[in-house]
Design a protein around this nucleic acid. Structure first.
Lengths: 148, 148
DNA sequence: CTGTGTGCAAACGTTTTGCACTTTA
DNA sequence: TAAAGTGCAAAACGTTTGCACACAG
């Protein structure tokens, strides 16, 4: 079984040592805090987290990390290309462990971000970027709420 | 010449009285501040504003409004369907006077939102909403930066 | 030992709110 | 004159930063 961290491929089972290597490759020292957060982020499948949520999760996992360090770490991971920032909600910043090109559902009642499972989305009729501009990315956010 | 405020159509030239009517229809008393802000928002073509920017604009226009009132007014206009909130940037909230179905460019270097001029965008391959959910809206944000 | 990372608390920018005052109908 | 809106200052919120201490290499 393989998974991805940023654009690194890694084999499950050798996670501990591998995370160390990934951090090193990203130019980040593999400290206790960063390894613990990386393990939470990449230990299972892909995830979407907010700083506050990750901090709470670390806490209830017995990992001692300050909220400031969580914020700093998320930003460093993002700058290193290990995470992608997802802008869906003005109130909070979400980070996605899946950095490949894909789109999102935003579940409005729950303030939750979910990957759109298919890669079949195609956007046609996109206009040119305004004069002198180039497109860096196209984000599609499908906002959903419970059908009640 | 006609324009739109929310889903109201109105004729230019009779702007003053018309704005009063629109506000009334939205259940909002046509106060001096709300009329002034509505005039700034709808006086020209469609616009994208942040609270701070609108407040500054009012100020340099000689209109005395507090920032809190600008925030409150923008929220009320949004709740009344006269404005649409555009989520493109975690740092700031933008409001769009064009409430019809359309998409946006976000100019990253300038923190500026621009309507995508065509209505030709089609999204194919959209998956079902997650079980028990229904789609409320699909947002497409095309992020651009200067081609330098 | 040197430099990087961490934690805390304080600072920050944006947005909301509580309350006394003003305006609208 | 009753109900709604306003302004101000203060609070609240998520996020960042400055600085002293701790840790990795």
């Amino acid at each position: 079984m393989t998974a991805h961290i940023g654009n690194q491929r890694y084999t499950h089972g050798s996670r501990g040592p591998c995370l160390t290597a990934v951090l090193r490759m990203a130019g980040l020292r593999p400290t206790r805090q960063r390894l613990a957060l990386a393990d939470l982020l990449y230990g299972g499948g892909h995830r979407h987290v907010s700083a506050e949520a990750l901090h709470a999760e670390a806490g209830s996992d017995g990992v001692t990390v300050s909220l400031a360090t969580v914020y700093n770490t998320l930003r460093q991971f993002k700058d290193a290309g290990l995470l992608r920032e997802v802008t869906v909600d003005a109130a909070r910043t979400y980070f996605d462990t899946n950095t490949s090109d894909h789109h999102h559902f935003f579940i409005e009642d729950e303030d939750r971000v979910v990957d759109i499972p298919t890669n079949d989305i195609e956007i046609s009729g996109l206009p040119e970027a305004p004069k002198g501009m180039k497109i860096t990315h196209v984000d599609v956010v499908v906002r959903v709420k419970s059908a009640g």
